[in-house]
Amino acid sequence: MRRLLLAAVICGAAQGAYAADMPDDLPFLRGSQPPSLSTVRTVWQGFYIGGQASYGSADMDFKNSGKELLERLLNNVDIESQYHLSTWPLGQKTSTQNEGFGGFLGYNLQSEDVVYGVELNYTHGKFFGASGGSQGRSFNYPTDYLTSAFVQSNASMQITDFGSLRVRAGYSFGCFLPYAFGGVAMGRADIQRNVSYSSRYQYVGTQIPPLPNLAGAGSLSDNANAHFIYGYAAGLGIDMMIVDGLFLRAEWEFLRFTAPVDTIVNTVRAGAGYRF
């Protein structure tokens, strides 16, 4: 029995001496575990650049597209001041879908897992819409006259280039970066507008000899090619780092332009970028 106890003590002492000679930086000796993927912090800070493909729709409201031209055309016409012909709705809303392509350039700052920065985003595409309308009304104006007025408006708009200068903020979940953004929308569009009016004043009084009948007409056009349009931008997206510096992107962007044709552009896009 004594021999067994002595042998056990000698083996234990030898084991302790062997452990003492092992390197201190082995993780299993310190009780640590290799970090999991969920605890790895991805560095998003720095400049980045990328390309994207998009698909979306443009909703164009032509209802008041000719208002400013009609105001100029009817500036000295008495029935405009009385019945505001220029405010009559003369167009409709249209919607068009198309694809596009473009790129983005930005800079990120990172504090712990919070990421924020600025980005310039650009898309080349083609969104086209057109609409027109006309209205005619009669008035007992001026005294002893029955007056009829007819106004017409036709307009078309094609957006060829658009983008946004945005600020964005997100939260890093390892290699995933969901984010939101807002900023200024900018674009270039070809806008053609044409308006016209005609009026007839028919005397219906009893004066003898009767007062004369009168008539008036006119038209005005405005063709603005490569016209600069602007508004505001907002949206959501997610970046996913696949290797150091290289990431994929999925995004939705909302743009509203305060052009002569009130326009909303919604696009979804997929892209890839590289952080330097």
Rank of each mutant, 00 (worst) to 15 (best):
Trp88Phe: 11
Ala226Ser: 13
Gln192Asn: 14
Ala130Gly: 15
Tyr179Ala: 10
Val77Lys: 11
Val268Thr: 11
Pro212Ser: 11
Ala270Cys: 01
Val43Asp: 15
Ile229Gln: 08
Gly56Ala: 03
Asn154Thr: 14
Arg30Ile: 04
Gly132Leu: 09
His84Gly: 10
Ser81Asp: 14
Ser172Pro: 15
Thr143Pro: 13
Phe101Lys: 08
Gly132Val: 09
Leu6Tyr: 08
Asn75Arg: 11
Ala20Thr: 08
Phe101Gly: 15
Arg256Trp: 01
Ser57Tyr: 11
Trp44Ser: 07
Ser86Tyr: 03
Met240Trp: 10
Ile264Thr: 12
Pro35Asn: 06
Phe228His: 09
Gly182Tyr: 03
Leu120Lys: 09
Arg193Tyr: 01
Asn223Gly: 05
Ser172Asn: 14
Ala189Asn: 07
Ala20Gly: 10
Ile229Asn: 10
Val40Asn: 09
Asp113Leu: 04
Val167Ile: 13
Phe28Ile: 05
Met1Ser: 13
Leu85Ile: 08
Ser36Lys: 07
Phe181Glu: 07
Val265Ser: 02
Tyr230Gly: 12
Ser131Leu: 09
Met1Leu: 07
Gly50Thr: 11
Leu220Asp: 13
Gln158His: 10
Asp262Trp: 00
Val43Ala: 12
Asp190Val: 01
Leu246His: 09
Arg269Gln: 12
Tyr55Phe: 12
Asn76Met: 05
Met1Asp: 13
Ser65Thr: 07
Val268Ser: 10
Gly205Thr: 10
Gly182Ser: 12
Tyr232Pro: 06
His84Cys: 03
Ala7Ile: 02
Lys67Trp: 01
Ser54Phe: 02
Cys11Trp: 02
Asn266Trp: 00
Val184Tyr: 15
Thr258Leu: 01
Pro212Gly: 10
Leu73Phe: 06
Gly46Tyr: 01
Gly103Ile: 00
Met22Ile: 04
Asn64Pro: 05
Asp144Ala: 15
Pro27Tyr: 14
Thr143Leu: 14
Gln82His: 09
Gln45Asn: 12
Gly133Asn: 09
Leu165His: 12
Trp44Tyr: 03
Pro178Ser: 00
Met1Phe: 06
Gly31Leu: 04
Ser172Lys: 08
Asp113Phe: 03
Arg168Tyr: 15
Val43Gly: 13
Thr123Ala: 08
Tyr145Ile: 14
Val9Asp: 09
Val114Arg: 07
Gly231Pro: 09
Val261Ile: 04
Leu255Tyr: 06
Tyr171Pro: 14
Asp239Thr: 01
Ala217Cys: 02
Ala13Ile: 02
Lys67Phe: 00
Gln52Val: 05
Leu69Val: 04
Met186Ala: 15
Ala250Ser: 14
Thr94Phe: 00
Val151Gly: 14
Ser81His: 07
Arg275Trp: 00
Gly46Met: 00
Met60Ser: 05
Arg188Tyr: 06
Asp262Cys: 00
Gly183Cys: 11
Pro209Cys: 06
Pro34Asp: 09
Ile79His: 06
Pro35Val: 05
Gly51Leu: 01
Arg275His: 02
Gln92Cys: 02
Arg168Ser: 10
Leu177Val: 04
Phe139Asn: 13
Leu4Ile: 09
Val115Cys: 13
Met60Thr: 02
Met186Asp: 13
Pro35Thr: 03
Ser131Asp: 15
Ala180Asn: 03
Asn213Met: 06
Gly50His: 08
Arg275Val: 00
Pro178Arg: 00
Arg256Ser: 11
Gln82Ala: 13
